[in-house]
Design a protein around this nucleic acid. Structure first.
Lengths: 155, 155
DNA sequence: GTGGATTCATTGGACATCCCAACGGTAATG
DNA sequence: CATTACCGTTGGGATGTCCAATGAATCCAC
């Protein structure tokens, strides 16, 4: 066991403080704050986080079937239906039957969808700027590099 | 706008990649992984994350009223009732009427609760060790320091 | 070809989390 | 002593995540 682990375990007369010094707890709090900031920001465009991600996926992968999109974004088929319903009703995407495979919907982004994506990109940038405000640019790069190395594992 | 922001916005022909390079997205993924690792670990003791946190709070603050505990942990009173019900049924905490204020329940941890907390502490440590495995001890300290400075804002 | 397995979009539901409102019982405040 | 506030509890709603099952369409092995 590492020295850090031992020092944390020795403080078990304060079990709550112990939990709150765990990296998983700390990164969870920061993530919750970042999630909230971005969610509030893009809510100005009437989109939720999942809908925003789905719209970005549609814009990136061009005409794409819902199942394929769901696999790429790790989104449940049910949630994909709901997100696309909202995006289609808002006029941001189109669902057209795929002539080559009538099971599939060829989903495409509309010009309005591209426009709202551009606005959401700015809003998300601003939210992230606020999230990282306590760090200078050098520290922000360090943080991103460290988090990136932790993320690699899950892929 | 910073150079980083501009470079990300210029890549908007790939909107999904843009989203996935945002710090909020990256920290969210790492947090989800950490949360899953810890949740799976303490599930071996039959506890959920919220129940674990509540149990730790009871152990730390000694005999304490539910409302006071909820305020300290930022847990909704309704969820506090559910968590304590489970912990009490498992024999990890006791609810006794407070003689000084009959509205309150004086919640205390049992020896079994202390024991399970100790085991959960080890399990949570192991999960966090796995989470941070790609980083050496020096980098782990850097990450914690950077995240800690981001967390300060919310307090 | 043709019959069985697979994939598609969709629907329904389980479950946890988070927030707000209301209740009877109790304590503090004027 | 009347009002106000707090206690634990219950109920409900909104949201997010995940799994199962359906009918239609396609693919594959024989």
């Amino acid at each position: 066991m590492s020295n850090e682990n031992r020092s944390r375990l020795e403080a078990m007369t304060t079990p709550l403080q112990h939990i709150q010094t765990l990296p998983s707890w700390l990164v969870g709090r920061v993530a919750a704050r970042g999630r909230g900031l971005v969610a509030d920001a893009i809510a100005a465009e009437g989109l939720r986080l999942l809908q925003h991600a789905v719209l970005a996926g549609v814009a990136e992968f061009g005409p794409v079937a819902q199942a394929e999109l769901g696999r790429r974004l790790a989104v449940d088929p049910k949630d994909m239906v709901g997100a696309l319903n909202h995006l289609q009703q808002a006029g941001y995407v189109l669902r057209a039957p795929d002539p080559a495979d009538r099971r599939k919907n060829a989903v495409t982004v509309t010009p309005e969808g591209v426009a709202v994506l551009a606005r959401c990109a700015e809003l998300a940038e601003a939210a992230n700027t606020e999230l990282l405000a306590p760090l200078n640019p050098d520290e922000q790069r360090q943080l991103m590099a460290l988090l990136g190395r932790l993320r690699q594992v899950e892929v």
